[in-house]
């Protein structure tokens, strides 16, 4: 579903992604972990071209990522993204956040989009907040609304960039539960997170990044029980202490 070959990314002189290869099969859930600054967000953002890769190829469902323009917009519609800071549209109600993409991009009739949006909001557990504005919601509710907004496009892949890092601890699980259920339903997902519980429960594969490279990749059981590299062992010992 997602195929990345030889991906390189520079920010000026800073070499942020160094020859990254990553293949994600349809229905697979891949968790990306690694220390701060290792390039996890940048990798995620390259996948829907919010960042433009310096070299290498990225294919989504067999299609190479188009350059700017309408074709890129169409591809982005198929690649959902959930941000750390939610990024709900502040001037629109939750319902209008969810229907915007379907109505304007997919040309779904308004009434139909509304019905689907309400069903999605119900599924992420915030149907009663449909007419509220984002600022009137808790962080956990906002993130669930953002997930509903991404799902409304019926994406082929969902990217999550630290979806629970901005949340108060008591709200983390309500978001993770939604993500676990999506994973169980066969959604293809790439998730940058430090939530090891989620990785164990839902991931098919854990990818460990360090200094712009994918250093290690394996099933959660393999990875957590016996990381092969020192870097990964070191990293795990740090985050598991907490």
């Amino acid at each position: 579903m997602v195929s990345v070959r030889g991906l390189q990314k520079w920010f000026g002189p800073l070499h942020v992604l160094k020859d990254v290869d990553l293949t994600v099969a349809a229905g697979e859930v891949v968790v990306v972990i690694g220390p701060s600054g290792s390039g996890k967000s940048t990798l995620c953002r390259c996948l829907n071209r919010l960042e433009v890769a310096g070299a290498g190829t990225i294919e989504i469902d067999g299609e190479p990522l188009p350059a700017e323009g309408r074709k890129l917009a169409r591809l982005r519609a198929d690649v959902g993204m959930v941000f750390q800071s939610f990024n709900l549209f502040g001037h629109r109600t939750v319902l209008d956040n969810v229907t915007l993409g379907p109505v304007r991009v997919r040309r779904v009739p308004k009434a139909e989009a509304r019905e689907q949006a309400l069903a999605l909001l119900d599924r992420v557990g915030i149907a009663d907040k449909a007419d509220h504005y984002p600022a009137q919601l808790s962080g956990g509710q906002q993130q669930r609304a953002a997930i509903a907004r991404a799902l409304a496009m019926r994406p082929k892949v969902l990217l999550f960039d630290e979806p629970t890092s901005a949340l108060d601890p008591e709200m983390v699980n309500e978001v993770l539960d939604v993500m676990v259920s999506l994973a169980a339903e066969g959604m293809t997902m790439i998730v940058v997170t430090h939530e090891m519980g989620f990785a164990r429960r839902a991931a098919d594969r854990v990818v460990f990044m360090d200094d712009g490279r994918i250093v290690e990749s394996g099933t959660p059981d393999e990875f957590f029980a016996a990381p092969r590299t020192d870097r990964a062992r070191d990293f795990l010992s740090k985050i598991l202490q907490h």
Binding site: N48, L50, R70, A73, R74, L75, R76, A77, D78, V79, G80, M81, F83, S85, N87, L88, F89, G90, H91, L100, G101, R104, V105, A146, R149, A150, M153
Partner: peptide
């Protein structure tokens, strides 16, 4: 915020659509 424009692009809005439905209204 840039996050608004990124979220707009991420759901597949074109530049002019993100301007019209997300950026300019705010």
């Amino acid at each position: 915020g840039v996050g608004q424009a990124e979220a707009a692009r991420a759901i597949g809005l074109t530049f002019s659509q993100s301007l019209r439905y997300v950026i300019l209204p705010q």
